[in-house]
Nucleic acid binder design. Structure first.
Length: 280
DNA sequence: CCGATCCTGATA
DNA sequence: TATCAGGATCGG
């Protein structure tokens, strides 16, 4: 599942490879995956891509006419770039059963939006519409607003389980299940502890670990977990999954104390932790 | 606050 | 063949 680091890896790739190119045509194969009237899509045809940006898990392509093409990959969304003249079977990034939208680039290949489970979407915004739609997002984890004291204030303000709070995009944009689990483990915080009970010293650790594991993941090209929901735009897998500390490690020995990692549900989501290193 | 919902493929 | 996976939203 693409979280902040995976979306950032995709953004950096697209920034390098497709900024400056022009979208000549959009094919909407699955109407559900394009929010809005399909005729709207014409508004971006013929437009040059002049930049990229990202807030949390949302990826934007900024167009010459100021419109913004926004992608939300949700669980199984993929953005695959097929360069010109490449001979590609499906494994190379051609049209798949899960292909929902195809962006034809003027003489320079294609971008495929694939999404097996159809939770993700693409939408066109004007700048003011985009600001409005993102007004309910908290600060991005990589932004300067995400400080130790911001984290402390947000956690202090609620007694919900800390893991549930970390996943709340209106407080922090970009954290998903993988990095919430691993950051809590590294910080020695039990995922079910009421957020308000965490002392400031521990929230500082949590802040540091959240940033470091997410940066580390970007360097590793993101996490392609067992489900293989995430791929880099060139169709290759990321390698951060080899750094998972507790995520999907049920029964494996804790890296610190060898106690078997436990699996529980918190707020309806799968949660992994070490029962010895992370106490309530 | 919790649970249901969306959706499909992998798994038990 | 039923269950599970979970980001975000919505209803109770």
């Amino acid at each position: 599942m693409p979280e902040l680091p995976e979306v950032e890896v995709i953004r950096q790739f697209l920034d390098k490879k497709i900024v400056g190119q022009t979208i000549s045509k959009i094919d909407i194969l699955t109407p559900k995956s394009f929010i809005g009237n399909p005729k709207q899509a014409k508004r971006v045809e013929g437009q040059k891509i002049i930049g990229t940006s990202r807030i949390g898990k949302q990826l934007s392509l900024i167009l010459e006419n100021n419109l913004i093409l926004l992608f939300h990959l949700k669980m199984t969304g993929q953005i695959i770039y097929l360069p010109p003249l490449s001979r590609g079977g499906p494994e190379r990034g051609g049209v798949l059963k899960s292909t929902r939208l195809i962006f034809k680039l003027k003489e320079t290949g294609f971008i495929f939006f694939n999404d097996q489970r159809k939770f993700g979407w693409v939408r066109i915004f004007t700048p003011s519409e985009l600001v409005e739609s993102q007004s309910n997002l908290g600060p991005d984890i990589f932004s300067s607003e995400f400080t130790p004291s911001y984290l402390y204030r947000q956690l202090r303000s609620t007694s919900r389980p800390v893991k549930t709070v970390l996943l709340d995009q209106s407080k922090f944009a970009g954290i998903g299940n993988i990095y919430a689990n691993d950051a809590l483990f590294l910080s020695g915080i039990h995922p079910q502890i009421p957020a308000s009970k965490i002392p400031r010293s521990q929230t500082q650790k949590l802040h540091r670990h959240l940033l470091s594991i997410m940066h580390q993941s970007v360097v590793a090209g993101g996490s392609t977990a067992k489900d293989r929901g995430y791929l880099k735009p060139d169709g290759s897998t990321g390698s951060n999954q080899s750094h998972f500390r507790v995520y999907q490690q049920t029964g494996e020995p804790c890296l610190k104390c060898k106690t078997p990692i436990k699996y529980i549900k918190v707020g309806g989501r799968g949660t992994f932790y070490c029962p010895k290193c992370q106490r309530l």
